[in-house]
């Protein structure tokens, strides 16, 4: 339907929310509008001359649109824009700021797996994968995207309540010489120096060292 007269207020707070480069466009409804507002979305690669419509986000009533596929090349930067429609009226387009997937994404904590012996615990960390189009698609670890990626690991002795920190570049850590029959809780965080990015700390994974057989 032709757009009659664009007097509708614009959508508000149009921005990308990105985690592991899964890039979702979010916005809020125009001021003072209730239900029934529909939206359409377009995006552009910064420096390239044309806006591209996103058909799957045409005449939608939700206030988000997954543009991960369209913004998956993290050597590019992007803009996206949203227009609202209600009762034959429309709004002007409302744009995001320039989106740089490499620096503007958030990173999930690493996956942590822990095993133990009588006197040691072994920790294996796995960095999250970059978003991919389909589960069959090629997996790209964020380690490949951010070569300077490091891990901060926290080890808590549940008996003494003492917490130690380790900073490691590779993804495995063995903590020897521990007390048998004691519970230790491990959590880990990803740390990239440039661009400066931190994940949060993962939840704690607790494991007990085996009991001392000789005791």
């Amino acid at each position: 339907s032709g757009e009659l007269y664009c007097s509708l207020p614009k959508p508000r707070n149009v921005h990308f929310e990105s985690i592991n480069m899964k890039n979702i466009l979010h916005w809020s409804a125009p001021e003072g509008t209730g239900d029934g507002v529909l939206y359409k979305v377009k995006y552009s690669v910064y420096g390239v001359g044309k806006w591209i419509r996103k058909p799957e986000c045409r005449n939608i009533n939700r206030t988000w649109c997954d543009l991960s596929s369209e913004t998956s090349d993290y050597e590019e930067q992007y803009y996206a824009s949203v227009k609202a429609f209600l009762n034959g009226m429309c709004s002007d387009w409302m744009e995001t700021t320039r989106f740089n997937p490499l620096t503007d994404t958030k990173i999930d904590p690493p996956m942590v797996s822990v095993s133990s012996t009588e006197k040691s615990i072994s920790i294996i960390l796995t960095a999250p994968e970059k978003w991919k189009r389909s589960s069959e698609g090629e997996s790209v670890s964020l380690l490949q995207v951010y070569p300077g990626l490091q891990y901060n690991v926290s080890v808590l002795n549940k008996k003494t309540k003492k917490r130690w920190f380790f900073s490691i570049s590779n993804n495995t850590l063995v903590v020897p010489w521990l007390e048998p029959g004691t519970a230790y809780c491990v959590s880990a965080q990803i740390h990239v120096t440039t661009p400066l990015l931190h994940s949060g700390f993962s939840k704690e994974y607790c494991i007990a060292t085996l009991k001392d057989k000789t005791a």
Partner: peptide
Amino acid sequence: VRTLSILSY
């Protein structure tokens, strides 16, 4: 100007 880049294109 969204349609031009100094460094990229």
